[in-house]
């Protein structure tokens, strides 16, 4: 689904990310972990063509992301609140997206119904601009928006951060259902090792812009390997 080839990002002479090769097959839940500054967000930004690569390329569904754009129709993403239009209310924002994705109002309300148990009654119909919501609720808006239009790939940066424990578990349920029902490909970065090992069947460990471990094993084994690394 996603293949990375010889990818490098440099600022001046500083190489902040270097990934010679990485393939993420369809339906995989790909977890990305690493300490601050390891390059997780940079990698996601490169995959989404939000910043230009210094070297190499990223392909989504066989399309070079820097040269084509139609891959955006099958990729949903939420990295940070700048990706939202924070001066809209959540409802207005979803309605704007519907126009962009060319969906019907019916599609939208069906979609949002699925997320109502994540929203917990605090998102829809609320008379507040997104910028005035709490960090957790802003995140919920972003996540629900990323799932709009039945994307084949969903990229989430720190989705569990700022969410209350109930919402974290509900989000996990949503992701696992998507994996099972639609074999959606997920790319998820997180500092919460327990959550990532629970839902992901593959975990890549970044350190200073390099892939230093590519784990494909059972939850317990990956848990052990990660805890060894982070408890050094």
């Amino acid at each position: 689904m996603i293949s990375i080839n010889n990818l490098e990002k440099k600022y001046g002479s500083d190489t902040v990310l270097s990934v010679p090769e990485l393939d993420i097959p369809k339906g995989q839940c790909f977890g990305l972990v690493g300490n601050n500054g390891a390059g997780k967000t940079t990698l996601f930004r490169l995959i989404l063509d939000l910043i230009p690569a210094s070297e190499g390329k990223v392909e989504i569904a066989e399309m070079n992301v820097a040269e084509h754009e139609s891959w955006k129709k099958i990729v949903g993403s939420y990295l940070d609140e700048h990706m939202l239009l924070t001066f809209l209310t959540p409802d207005e924002y979803f309605n704007t997206l519907v126009k962009i994705y060319g969906l019907s109002d019916e599609d939208l309300s069906k979609h949002l119904d699925k997320y109502e148990f994540l929203f917990n009654g605090e998102i829809r119909g609320i008379k507040k601009y997104i910028r005035d919501l709490s960090k957790g609720n802003i995140k919920k808006v972003g996540i629900a928006a990323a799932f709009l239009g039945n994307p084949q790939v969903v990229i989430l940066d720190e989705p569990f951060e700022n969410l209350d424990p109930t919402s974290q578990n509900r989000l996990k349920t949503i992701i696992m259902n998507e994996l099972k029902d639609n074999s959606t490909t997920f790319l998820i970065s997180s500092h919460d090792l327990a959550h990532v090992t629970d839902i992901c069947d593959r975990i890549v460990l970044l350190e200073r812009g390099m892939v230093i471990n590519d784990l494909k094993a059972s939850s317990e084994e990956m848990s052990q390997a990660l805890s060894d690394y982070f408890n050094r």
Binding site: L48, D49, L50, E69, S70, K72, K73, V75, S77, L79, H82, M83, L84, L85, L97, I100, Y101, G149
Partner: peptide
């Protein structure tokens, strides 16, 4: 930043 990730040319 608010638009680049959406399917708009």
């Amino acid at each position: 930043v608010s638009w680049l990730h959406l399917p708009i040319n």
